[in-house]
């Protein structure tokens, strides 16, 4: 924010004078716009929280805030013997965390290499990443399903209905565009830094590990957060691969709740949704600044 702030505060200081009526009207209109936008942004989130606190079994039109808020829905959600929500929650966190670690590790190496080394096929590789990235993998489900089934006959733990298979799929899927983001970021780090380290006798690995990687923190955190959010939020691939109830993720579970026969328990679904959103928000808030830095640095370099 620094540049913008400096710039605008200096202007504000130089032009400080009593608030004119015109400015008042301007402020009023801007606040009106802000309130409208905030309503648009916040109401859905508030609505799901309020619905989760509504003890009534189904939604009845017109009531936004429940008359007698209570935590029954949460109790019901967490006490269900047959739908182990807590287990799903742990599964989701586990899958998303491991995916994040793998993706961050692989993409920082690859992004660094693509930025710093010139080798045959580099341009083709980057083009391939861009093009393959748009392959509609949802539609390749039959192929992925068959492949995992076959792998599973030899190595059981990367077959269908395993977390390992899902993690590998997510890691691969999120590598593509992230590699390019890392590359753009590394491009913006002066190459002289590496060169002087190499001249001092460091190996390329040491240069990367001790010189470049620490500077890459914002992009690494950005990719980590984005990958985590994507892996945690996916339900399409997970739904096809995961079957046994103890293996499901929160998102697949929520979809299960949503099928026809569960409709009457809308309160329970919303309670599940609220709880499911918490980890992401907890991760996002403290890291928000880095994400903004990481994303914008990449985009600005283009």
């Amino acid at each position: 924010m620094d540049a913008v702030q400096n710039h605008s505060t200096s202007r504000a200081v130089s032009m400080r004078k009593p608030i004119s009526p015109r400015k008042l009207v301007r402020y009023f209109l801007l606040y009106l716009l802000a309130v409208a936008l905030i309503l648009f942004a916040v109401i859905p989130a508030l609505w799901v929280v309020s619905a989760s606190l509504n003890p009534a079994k189904s939604l009845i039109g017109g009531t936004f805030f429940p008359a007698e808020p209570s935590f029954v829905n949460y109790e019901e959600l967490l006490s269900s013997e047959f739908f182990p929500y807590a287990k799903w929650f742990v599964n989701s966190l586990k899958i998303a965390s491991i995916t994040t670690v793998i993706t961050v590790f692989l993409t920082s190496l690859a992004g660094y290499a693509l930025s710093r080394f010139r080798f045959q096929g580099r341009r083709v590789l980057m083009l391939a990443i861009l093009v393959l990235n748009v392959f509609p993998s949802i539609l390749a489900m039959v192929a992925i399903f068959s492949m995992l089934q076959q792998l599973g006959t030899v190595i059981e733990w990367i077959g269908l209905d395993t977390h390992a298979a899902l993690i590998l799929l997510y890691s691969t899927g999120s590598m593509g565009i992230n590699v390019l983001l890392v590359k753009a970021y590394v491009d913006s780090i002066p190459v002289e830094l590496d060169e002087s380290a190499l001249v001092d006798g460091a190996t390329p690995w040491q240069t990367f590990r001790h010189i470049v990687f620490p500077i890459m923190t914002p992009i690494v955190i950005t990719i980590g957060v984005l990958t985590f959010i994507a892996a945690y939020g996916d339900f399409v691939i997970a739904r096809v691969l995961l079957k046994s109830s103890e293996n499901l993720t929160v998102m697949v579970g929520l979809q299960l709740f949503q099928t026809d026969r569960f409709d009457q328990d809308f309160g329970v679904i919303t309670a599940g949704a609220v709880l499911a959103a918490i980890p992401i928000i907890l991760i996002y808030i403290p890291l928000q600044k880095y994400v903004i830095d990481g994303l914008t640095a990449g985009s600005v370099k283009g």
Partner: peptide, 14 residues
């Protein structure tokens, strides 16, 4: 910025 961290599936269902 609130809409961003809410998982997509949940947002759409809401």
């Amino acid at each position: 910025i609130i809409p961003w961290p809410i998982p997509v599936l949940i947002s759409i269902l809401i």
